[in-house]
């Protein structure tokens, strides 16, 4: 079995081009079921057995695969591929490869609806996980006002930072902000003019700087709940414990 090692480039899109370069290579080598590994993803342990084939980034090849996927599948399929790739599902690259092959081989008019095919079901499920988590974070992300900058730390399971950029950029265009994925040490910076994506970001802003508004928010949060309807299980279904550490009202 061949292992293809692809580089982590273009973090603002989660490193997809590196992976697509490797997909191109797998096609070129006519590999049937290769394995894919990402090199240098910040959250990943260094590979112990570097026995794979290292594939360099090729913008041109990545572009060709992307165009192929879009031509065959359309926007919806492309979005699904991106989201599944950004998910935390184990073996997502391998599964996506099978999916892309199925797509390119053609014959399936509406591939996303073929939930009876295992690779389709797995890709659709992984993409849904990412999309749901990204949607959740549009709501539960909390900014701390620190000097003149609004700082939002988060620890999502999937790599959702690329999917939240457009929303927060439109919503908070007139304030400088940073959204920091602590697990992946990546951050988005908006200075009211440009959006930049940085990797290897370890510095953090203190989260208790904004005591006045956090206090107001907590007292509103407490006042808004109906004691007669207390239902902590329901609350936990909506806000799992893993998400609570950066939400001031949950402290």
């Amino acid at each position: 079995m061949t292992v293809l090692m692809y580089p982590y480039e273009h973090p603002e899109e989660g490193g997809l081009s590196g992976y697509l370069s490797a997909v191109f290579e797998a096609y070129r080598l006519k590999l049937r079921q290769p394995r894919f590994r990402c090199l240098r993803a910040p959250e990943q342990e260094p590979e112990l057995f570097n026995s794979g084939l290292t594939v360099p980034l090729s913008e041109e090849r990545a572009e060709r695969v992307a165009r192929g996927v879009m031509r065959r599948g359309g926007d919806e399929v492309w979005k699904t591929v991106l989201r599944a790739f950004l998910s935390d599902a184990g073996g997502r690259e391998d599964m996506l490869y099978l999916f892309i092959r199925r797509l390119m081989d053609g014959g399936e008019a509406e591939l996303l609806h073929r939930l009876d095919l295992p690779e389709v079901a797995a890709v659709v499920r992984a993409a849904g996980r990412t999309a749901r988590e990204a949607q959740k974070f549009l709501g539960i992300l909390r900014f701390v006002k620190y000097a003149d900058i609004y700082y939002a730390p988060m620890e999502p399971e999937c790599r959702i930072l690329p999917l939240t950029a457009a929303h927060f950029r439109a919503r908070f265009a007139d304030q400088a902000w940073i959204i920091h994925d602590l697990r992946r040490k990546e951050a988005l910076f908006w200075n009211k003019r440009d959006l930049t994506f940085e990797t290897g970001v370890t510095a953090r802003a203190p989260e208790d700087e904004d005591a006045f508004f956090q206090g107001l928010w907590k007292s509103y949060f407490t006042a808004a709940a109906l004691a007669e309807r207390r239902n902590l299980n329901l609350q936990r279904n909506f806000v799992p414990l893993k998400y609570r550490s950066h939400m001031p009202e949950m402290q």
């Binding site: 304030q175 309807r229 806000v239 939400m247």
Partner: peptide, 23 residues
């Protein structure tokens, strides 16, 4: 991408927090 003023309205709506009553 760069509206005047602050804020945007997401057509699908967004939930931001859930109280101890689960609402």
């Amino acid at each position: 991408a760069a509206p005047g003023g602050v804020g945007s309205a997401a057509p699908s709506g967004i939930c931001h927090a859930w109280g101890t009553d689960g609402r």
